[in-house]
């Protein structure tokens, strides 16, 4: 094993970490899950989506950096992943640019209109609370 140069000048060699950081990340991810469920259950309107996505992004970043060791990795591997996420955002932006530029009549349901009034919106909260099992 002595004939192999590990470490110093080699970005591809991963450091062996103590268990502490993994336990910490795990606990942070569990806390994030609790936070997601608690805030998700509150009725905060539009803010719900933003909070949920912010927590999910934070959790994902923790996983990528510390569980997947991108924190220790060399530049190329970081670049690959960041670029793929970037292209996801390009895809979303392109499709939404198209959707928003359309006339409502050209959309499948005549645009994003909530059709819930004719059914009485409040009445649907009833069965929602009882997801029983067979």
């Amino acid at each position: 094993m002595a004939d192999i140069e590990l470490g110093t000048n080699n970005p591809a060699a991963h450091a062996v970490h103590g268990l502490k950081r993994y336990v910490f990340v795990w606990l942070a991810l569990l806390a994030g899950t609790v936070l997601t469920v608690v805030t998700g259950r509150m009725d905060l309107g539009e803010a719900n989506i933003i909070i949920a996505l912010a927590i999910a992004t934070t959790k994902a970043t923790l996983v990528v950096l510390f569980f997947m060791h991108l924190y220790d990795a060399g530049g190329v591997n970081r670049l690959v992943f960041v670029v793929s996420v970037l292209f996801v955002l390009v895809l979303l932006a392109g499709v939404f640019g198209d959707l928003m530029a359309r006339l409502p009549v050209s959309l499948p349901n005549g645009g994003p209109v909530a059709p819930v009034e004719m059914h009485g919106g409040a009445g649907h909260e009833g069965p929602a609370a009882s997801p029983e099992h067979p």
Binding site: V80, S84, V88
Partner: peptide, 28 residues
């Protein structure tokens, strides 16, 4: 990591579908 990048893009299609239909039927 290149392979994982393609996996991210594979699921991106489904997330996109979700987002589009969520925008069209927010209440539902």
């Amino acid at each position: 990591w290149l392979f994982l990048g393609t996996e991210v893009l594979l699921f991106a299609g489904l997330f996109l579908g979700y987002t589009v239909y969520r925008w069209l039927y927010p209440q539902t």
